[in-house]
Nucleic acid binder design. Sequence first.
DNA 1: CGCGAAATTGACTATATTCAAAGCTAGTGG
DNA 2: CCACTAGCTTTGAATATAGTCAATTTCGCG
Lengths: 247, 247
Amino acid sequence: MQSTDRPQFEIDEADIPAGCKACGARQFGICSALKASELTHFSTVTRRRKIVHGETISFEDDEVVDYANIVSGAVKLTKLLSDGRQQIVGLQFAPEFIGKPFSEKVSISVEAATDVEICVFPKTELENMLKQQPDFEHRLLEQTLIQLDDARTWMVTLGRKTAQEKVASFLLLLADHIGKPAPDNPTDSEFMLPLKRADIADFLGLTLETVSRQMTKLRKMGAIDIRKNLEVTVHDTDRLIAISGGD
Amino acid sequence: MQSTDRPQFEIDEADIPAGCKACGARQFGICSALKASELTHFSTVTRRRKIVHGETISFEDDEVVDYANIVSGAVKLTKLLSDGRQQIVGLQFAPEFIGKPFSEKVSISVEAATDVEICVFPKTELENMLKQQPDFEHRLLEQTLIQLDDARTWMVTLGRKTAQEKVASFLLLLADHIGKPAPDNPTDSEFMLPLKRADIADFLGLTLETVSRQMTKLRKMGAIDIRKNLEVTVHDTDRLIAISGGD
DNA sequence: CGCGAAATTGACTATATTCAAAGCTAGTGG
DNA sequence: CCACTAGCTTTGAATATAGTCAATTTCGCG
């Protein structure tokens, strides 16, 4: 975006650990609360991990041993009913934080929806950092409040919207997080679906057949286009918002 | 519960502000993070407010001016769709915290489900306290994490459970929060419904007729008893858990 | 007792699910 | 390069679950 190579934060930039330089969490995630020196310390206890699409990062009721920031990709948070019914309770993208601090057990499975890169740090390290750095805890509280808001917004979708509205809401959510302007028509938004139909169904509280039917309907209405089952173009965002029932 | 009058916290108890003495928030809410002296200061800027059943405490998209702890009663958090469809996204009981720190606008309406008493404090006071007292912020983070967990648990109910399971889950939630052992049969749990059928429907993502039918069914199955439309007795909690689809 | 609000019950309908079959798509090996 | 396969997706027909509309009953309260 800038024509010069001048760094944006001239004072700090040189001291930023190499691994953190390109990491979104440093600018927008919880690490933004850390000073260069703290970040340097922190970076000695973190490690990068690549996770392929479909792999589970942590299981429901596993013991909590680690936390992580998402560096790239998307993860899905799922909850299970005892008879196997499943609900995806959240999608998270870079540079969001994964993990539930201060609890012994997690009640959620975290699975890589796309190929994912995460920056992992041990439970004790994070908890120390939280104790020593009120700013850090503050940043985490802010992120948690956003997640709470997202969860409650999605509850309206789950409880009160029709299948058509749910699918439209889902596509808008993705356009918002990972959509890019289409090269040929910049008012269109393009993205790759990070979830297959069955997962979309688990996110929307529908069956995969219903999701498929509604996608087809939206396509025939001209609101969207889908190629190769997962390349989506949103032609008319306002129209899709109207279809989604708003919020 | 205790036969002697000896206070539980001998050192502090004498210094606790009178209004805080019987308040659940002091023991279990965010105020538990405050020392006696801090509590004394804090209590000078708080005020008690009684709100009758049905009254709205703050409207969706109102500006945030206050926060509060619930001293007694239950409040419902609701979200609206533009065409009027409504979803209750949370029920809160004493001594929980109400309000969304650090944001200019709230995206939720807060309404008294029963007659409610709250302890109100100005936005700036709370935010100062949070800055000065990391423990206080920590306690708020913990409560927020619990609310996030509750919200996600409820998402499973909304997205994946049948009407019957939803109603059973709702009754179990209430038994858990406000249920008391029945005088005649202590294995039974009794409580008053804080919501009318239309509200229960908005909480469960159903219509009021469906809620009514499922209540009748549960009554005929012998799992519960309802008198005067709002006095509920749960006869067999395990049975109700089985019906609820577990979690 | 009588009124208004809320809850129940009934009959019918709509929406999404279920079960089943056929069509794509991407990847593999001949 | 094409055929073959495995996994997903789409489509169709029949069904079930919850929603809608309407009538009746119960409850709370003056």
